[in-house]
Write a protein that binds this DNA or RNA. Structure first.
Lengths: 142, 142
DNA sequence: CCTCAATTATTGACCTGTCAATAAAATATA
DNA sequence: TATATTTTATTGACAGGTCAATAATTGAGG
């Protein structure tokens, strides 16, 4: 396997750098952190959902999920209750208030992402998405 | 499982998810965090360098740089001294010890990245690198 | 000279993520 | 039934990043 070290080095550096840039900028533009947005977005798509399946969907540690949701609950964006049939699990859903608010966030988010990808055509988007998925797969075993 | 995400939505989610996966795995595999590695790598390439230009090279906040370098100094990996001609700036360089150590890290890092990109050919690597750069440019104004 | 602005590094407050340890509930099994 | 295992959520300790405020030094202009 031929490995161009410099290219390989670059990729990791670029990925990290890009992400470090994205997070604060996303928040400045949209008024919400990208993780919070992800959570709300997932909730927006469904009615009521287990915390654990939500965790898997957004792909961040469950400890972080707990803290985000507690915050969002304190802000009146989401409501939580235990599953009566299984007292371990917690159901989460958007409140009416939350459902209303997220519409605005969505708009800002679309603007941001459109700017970030404004010069990508459909084919490139698919290529990129494919590559990111492949990388994720390639390190999933570790 | 929901699949109603547009491509634009997906990209951001993938990027974030990938990065969250990479950081801990990189550290487990190589024995050093990817930011620390970046710093040492930059220092490896030069002899002695301003902290501020180092900061620009690795593209993370200067507050974080200060803390990393203090740690690395405490571990005997880097040495720092003030520039005699401008007492504001600090020169950083690898110690002999650090220069020796990083060789091992480099090997582990190459293994990790090769695994992550093992099914990417040269053209794909360039495409990917190009795309990441474009995204970074597209949000640089924010 | 003296003040004012710019540069550099540092620190503190805060946010977000990880891991490891725990608690509580449900489930499997001896 | 009693005990062990698994699942789920939570918490604490920690690492790494941002921003904003500060100090110290340098450089520029009146």
């Amino acid at each position: 396997m031929r490995c161009s070290l410099s290219n390989h080095e670059q990729i990791l550096h670029l990925l990290k750098g890009l992400n470090n840039q994205i997070s604060p900028k996303f928040e400045r533009c949209t008024g919400i952190s990208s993780s919070r947005y992800e959570l709300l977005h997932q909730l927006y798509e469904t009615d009521e959902i287990n915390q654990s399946t939500l965790q898997k969907a957004v792909n961040i540690d469950s400890a972080a999920i707990t803290r985000h949701l507690k915050q969002l609950e304190a802000n009146g964006m989401v409501a939580r209750r235990r599953n009566p049939n299984d007292n371990r699990v917690i159901f989460v859903r958007l409140t009416e208030e939350g459902r209303k608010q997220i519409v605005g966030y969505k708009k800002e988010k679309v603007n941001f992402v459109n700017q970030m990808l404004h010069d990508f055509n459909q084919e490139e988007l698919e290529t990129l998405s494919d590559m990111l998925n492949r990388m994720q797969n390639n390190i999933s075993e570790y």
